[in-house]
Design a protein around this nucleic acid. Structure first.
Length: 424
RNA sequence: GGUGAGGUGGGUGAGUGGCUGAAACCACCGGUUUGCUAAACCGGCGUACUUGGAAACAGGUACCGCGGGUUCGAAUCCCGCCCUCACCGCCA
């Protein structure tokens, strides 16, 4: 959520930014400013009345203690009058606040200046292309769902039986490969200075609101209505909320956290080839890295995160490219996002496996995550996160790219984790 | 699921209607003293909104789990809700 003050003082910048996103309801900016003016005026009127009431109440107390009953009674009448007005103003103020808030949460984050304009993923900028050859995984490309069946690593039908489509079952070496990747990613993140956490997999609505899943995007989460909890769509939600309602010291930065969790996404409305096999599922594993940074250092942190993800993919020997998302493809809460895509040779297509974003103060404003600077002033911190990495699709790419027609080779770096070097 | 206790500032914890935005202690920050550390002493130390100001700062308002009520006046009294803890039951 953007700060009202920021919107008022940077109206043109906000409107331009929304334009880069292709955001249609530009009028909302004016509406918000108007609503805030109303809120402020109401607030100030109310405060004046309350001040008068407080003053009068004190006098009444004194008059009573001095035994001046009559004078006190007179003042009481005056306060009773004020009371009626206060009640009305209070209602008006609450309405104005709610009204403003409701408009405010509809406004997405302002894109970073480097974000290219555009409407769809076709307009994303290739930030770093893949220079080498793209493997086709032998046998003119075998998709991972066939390999999974052939080597008894994955069973999608079983998942359907137990739960429904989009809930794959990993078996044998497939399960071990999954677990090995999780360990590898966590170990690498720890080495890079991220503190490992195991967060809850369900969150309350305050947390879902804090990272921007609520309001509006509740349809993407599994909702346990009986207990008013949500299954997390990403570890970003519980981990970022560790610092909800917090005031940090400047010296606390940088804060680097990582965590492995399963992720649950309803993915309502998905269909077609995009959702075959592991390409898009309702439950998948992911290691997430999350950072809380001083505003001046957040973009350096973002670069550092890119390097971290790159090193993972390099070591897994996976061909990848990095995209800078265009305005239209940018997530609601993000100011700048880089997507990582790996080449899945069996399908002959790129699969998104990581999304690394700087949210600047957008999440922090909702989270009320602040820090005190050297002058003792409180400011909003910057939050960032990235997948490092999303598991299921990595498995898909590894299987497809490393299949030579006979066996599937395990990258060297994973072998200490898997305990085997080929799947045959 | 049952029973009981409780939610006050970073922490412990006082406070049962006006002098309480809130004692005291601890932690923290600044200073004095000091060979270093420690101790002692002095001072400071919540958040949000808002008015004025370039700023420093000054004023106003709100906040003692949340919402409502009683009252001229509520941390304090009343009602509803939420949460936490303890014990029992069940249980990986």
């Amino acid at each position: 959520m953007l700060q009202v003050n920021f919107i008022e003082n940077n109206k043109d910048l906000v409107i331009n930014g929304l334009g880069v996103r292709g955001f249609k309801e530009i009028d909302l900016v004016e509406t918000i400013i108007k609503k805030d003016t109303l809120r402020r005026n109401t607030q100030s009127e109310l405060d004046k009345l309350l001040a008068e009431r407080n003053q009068a109440s004190k006098v009444i107390g004194k008059l009573f203690s001095e035994g001046k009953r009559e004078e006190a009674e007179q003042m009481k009448n005056r306060v009773t009058e004020i009371k009626a007005a206060v009640e009305k103003l209070n209602e008006a103020l609450n309405a104005a606040k709610q009204d403003l808030q409701q408009a405010l949460v509809q406004l997405p984050n302002i894109p970073h200046p480097s974000v290219p304009p555009g409407n769809t993923d076709a307009d994303n900028e290739v930030f770093k292309a893949w220079e080498g050859e793209l493997p086709n995984g032998g046998e003119a490309g075998t998709p991972h769902w066939e390999l999974g069946k052939k080597f008894n690593l994955l069973d999608f039908d079983l998942g359907v039986k137990i739960t429904g489509s989009g809930f794959p079952v990993f078996l044998g070496k497939g399960a071990k490969l999954e677990r090995s990747l999780i360990s590898f990613f966590l170990d690498e993140a720890t080495k890079a200075g991220y503190l490992e956490v195991v967060p809850p997999l369900m969150v309350n609505s305050a947390s879902a609101y804090g990272t921007g899943q609520l309001p509006d995007k509740e349809g993407q989460m599994y909702h346990i209505t009986e207990d008013e909890l949500y299954l997390i769509p990403t570890a970003e939600v519980p981990i970022t909320n560790i610092y909800r309602d917090t005031i940090l010291k400047e010296s606390d930065f940088p804060i680097k956290l990582c965590g492995y969790t399963p992720c649950f996404r309803r993915e309502a409305g998905s269909y077609g080839k995009d959702v075959r096999g592991l390409n898009r599922v309702h439950q998948f594993d992911k290691v997430e890295i999350v950072r809380f940074e001083h505003p001046e250092k957040s973009y350096a942190a973002l670069e550092d995160m890119l390097l971290h993800v790159e090193s993972l993919l390099d070591r897994l020997e996976l061909p990848y490219r990095i995209l800078r998302l265009c305005g239209g493809d940018l997530g609601f809460t993000s100011a700048l996002t880089f997507d990582f895509e790996v080449w899945a040779g069996g399908q002959g297509r790129w699969l998104e496996v990581s999304s690394v974003s700087n949210f600047e103060t957008f999440q922090a404003n909702r989270l009320k995550l602040r820090y005190k600077d050297a002058n003792g002033k409180t400011n909003l911190a910057h939050t960032l996160n990235g997948s490092a990495l999303a598991l299921a699709r990595i498995v898909a790419a590894l299987l497809e790219n490393n299949f030579d027609g006979q066996v599937i080779r395990i990258p060297e770096v994973l072998q200490p984790y898997t305990g085997f070097d080929v799947i045959e």
